[in-house]
Each structure stands twice: as structure tokens, then as C-alpha cells.
Amino acid sequence: MSDTDFEPKIVAFLCNWCTYTGADLAGTSRIQYPPNVRIIRLMCSGSVDPTYVLKALLDGADGVLIGGCHPGDCHYQSGNYKARRRVIALKEILKQAGMEEDRVWLRWISASEGQRFAETVAKMTEFLKEKGPSPMRQKWAV
């Protein structure tokens, strides 16, 4: 598949209070970004179970974006720190299993950072286009 016609699929798990609202702001500000991202709203980035990320990758996502509040800003005090620890562990596991850990991005994007959200999606889409389709789905297909 050539770079030009490959459109990566990005599943995004966004916390309700910061990044989901930031994505809404990108919308109300009419900031254009690639349509490759599909958003799941969760209450907190700390509730993103690593199995959700794995499932997304195995189901065919080319990348997974986890968006949470900036450190210190969590609506639930410390959920984003929990997310950070889990993502570090998850990436380690992906590496050990020979999977591409750089397909999983964790980003802090606040409710006022619509621009940053749009830029993040654009960057990630670009990154994944260059990287090519995720091999994980094929590898694990039984």
C-alpha cells in the first residue's frame, strides 16, 4: 500500500473533563484536522484499561491516542498520573511482545487547548501514514 492512499485509523480515549472538551473546542473553533480519529468518551484517562488499547490495536486500529488533563489538573485528583504509569507499563509489554509501542500516544490536552488537540491528531495521522498500516491485526488473526 502506498503512503498516499493509506488512511490510518486512530481510536482515541479522551477524558470527559479536559481532552474531550478540548476536542469540542477544536470543533467550536472550526479548526480542521484529519478525519482519521474516532473518539471514545471516558470520564478519566485513569479509567483507560490497557485491554481497551490492546483490543483496539488487535481489532485494526493503526494507532491509539489517550488524552487526559495536564498533570495536577485531574478532575479526580490523580487519574492522569495513573494513566501515565499504566501507559508506560503497557508500552513495555508491547515492546516485549514485539509490537510497535509507538502506535500508542498519551497526551495531556486541556479543555482550552483545541488547537493542540487538532495538531496532535494531525501529527499522529502523519506519523502513522509514514509508518504504514499496523501489522498487529494480521499477526494475531487466528
Binding site: 481510536v11 471516558l42 470520564m43 479509567s47 481497551y52 490495536l57 481489532d59 485494526g60
Partner: peptide, 16 residues
């Protein structure tokens, strides 16, 4: 309202 089966059902659709 945010049970694993509910979220995984979303994942299934969005990643598939």
C-alpha cells in the same frame, strides 16, 4: 455506564 463490555463494543466498531 462505562462497563468494559460497553466500551469494548465501541472499540470494536471504531477500530474495525
Amino acid at each position: 455506564h462505562f462497563r468494559p463490555d460497553q466500551i469494548l463494543a465501541q472499540v470494536d466498531v471504531l477500530a474495525g
